[in-house]
Amino acid sequence: AEDTGVRVELAEEDHGRKSTIALRLWVEDPKKLKGKPKDNGAIEFTFDLERETPDDVAQEMIESGFFHESDVKIVAKSIRDRVALIQWRRERIRPALQ
């Protein structure tokens, strides 16, 4: 995935059984953002793979004051890339779960 300066990782082990996953997001390279992020904290949140979109979560982070509104796309992309990787991995392990 493209290096957006915003890192998103699983906050818990993914067994591929729940639609909701816990993710953790933090800024690795503030220079890649247009605005100044709130601080150097890691933001943990849950994401429903079936019902939510990365754009929704990114918008809520902007509204909660974590990022400047000009960075909504870069935050959404960072989440989208990680979610895509999780879904790709789930597709691969699905036969083993059945």
Binding site: D39, G41, E44, E60, E63, F66
Partner: peptide, 27 residues
Amino acid sequence: SSLTQVVHSAGRRFIVSPVPESRLRES
């Protein structure tokens, strides 16, 4: 505690914790 919790009006909960130094990229 060093954890901060922010709840968005839509109901989503964000829990903020310090990032370990080892996870931050050196610039």
